[in-house]
Simulated scan of single mutants.
Amino acid sequence: MPQGDYRAAVVDGGLALSAGVTPRVGGRLTVTGLVGGDVAPAVAFDAAGLAARNAVAAIVAALDGNVGRLRRLLRMTVYVACADGFTDLSAVADGATAGLRGAAPAAGLPVRSAIGVRSLPSGAPVEVELTAAVRP
């Protein structure tokens, strides 16, 4: 569920885009803090996987629950809230990739960016945005 005044995902034509999605279960963050500070990279890896699975779920919900309409994952951006000096962003983003493999194996892997930031909404250590090609 969105944590503000926006949609979790939209579909337009042959594209579906998720909002920035954090590692939440039942609307609650599973972990908060800065990666490389108070959040270990292994914990962030798992959090990124959860956020990616949540992004897929948001897109599937926007497709009225029809996962068969999900044709191809195109692009994923993984934002990592990290402590000064933390540079292992790709290792954290690999958790998001692992989450996609589990949530939508038939949709393939997207291109990916991993971006280090100072903070994310509600203190989340990771946030994932996903773009997918969809069938009509």
Score class of each variant (00 low, 15 high):
46 D>I: 14
68 G>S: 15
35 V>F: 03
33 G>C: 08
44 A>E: 01
57 A>W: 09
44 A>F: 03
45 F>G: 00
30 T>R: 06
42 A>G: 12
36 G>I: 03
29 L>C: 04
73 L>V: 04
50 L>A: 03
66 N>S: 11
39 V>D: 01
42 A>E: 15
39 V>T: 02
67 V>P: 03
40 A>T: 10
50 L>P: 03
37 G>E: 02
72 R>Y: 07
44 A>M: 04
38 D>M: 08
46 D>W: 10
36 G>S: 14
75 R>V: 13
32 T>N: 07
47 A>T: 07
51 A>K: 07
75 R>T: 13
48 A>V: 00
41 P>Q: 14
55 A>E: 10
73 L>T: 03
65 G>D: 02
54 N>Q: 05
33 G>S: 06
52 A>H: 10
62 A>C: 12
75 R>F: 11
35 V>L: 03
29 L>M: 05
61 A>M: 08
60 V>C: 11
70 L>W: 02
31 V>Q: 05
70 L>I: 03
48 A>L: 00
45 F>V: 06
26 G>D: 14
56 V>H: 01
59 I>L: 12
70 L>G: 00
71 R>V: 08
60 V>N: 05
63 L>Y: 09
66 N>C: 09
52 A>T: 07
41 P>I: 11
46 D>Y: 13
52 A>Q: 07
67 V>S: 14
65 G>M: 04
32 T>D: 07
58 A>K: 10
55 A>N: 12
65 G>E: 02
68 G>L: 15
37 G>I: 01
49 G>A: 05
49 G>C: 08
57 A>T: 13
43 V>A: 14
31 V>N: 02
69 R>I: 11
49 G>K: 02
57 A>F: 11
53 R>F: 04
57 A>Y: 09
27 G>Q: 10
53 R>A: 13
46 D>T: 14
41 P>A: 12
59 I>A: 06
32 T>I: 13
48 A>P: 00
58 A>S: 15
60 V>L: 14
41 P>L: 11
31 V>P: 04
45 F>C: 02
72 R>S: 09
39 V>R: 00
38 D>V: 12
37 G>Q: 02
51 A>I: 09
27 G>R: 06
60 V>K: 11
65 G>P: 00
64 D>Y: 06
75 R>E: 14
48 A>K: 00
44 A>N: 02
32 T>C: 08
59 I>H: 09
35 V>K: 00
35 V>H: 03
54 N>H: 07
71 R>Y: 10
56 V>E: 00
43 V>L: 14
69 R>F: 09
30 T>D: 04
35 V>C: 05
43 V>P: 05
29 L>W: 02
70 L>E: 01
45 F>Y: 15
38 D>C: 06
26 G>S: 06
27 G>M: 07
38 D>I: 06
50 L>D: 01
62 A>W: 12
60 V>W: 12
45 F>M: 03
63 L>N: 09
75 R>H: 14
38 D>S: 13
42 A>S: 15
68 G>R: 15
73 L>R: 00
69 R>S: 07
44 A>C: 13
57 A>G: 14
63 L>S: 08
55 A>I: 11
71 R>Q: 15
45 F>D: 01
37 G>H: 01
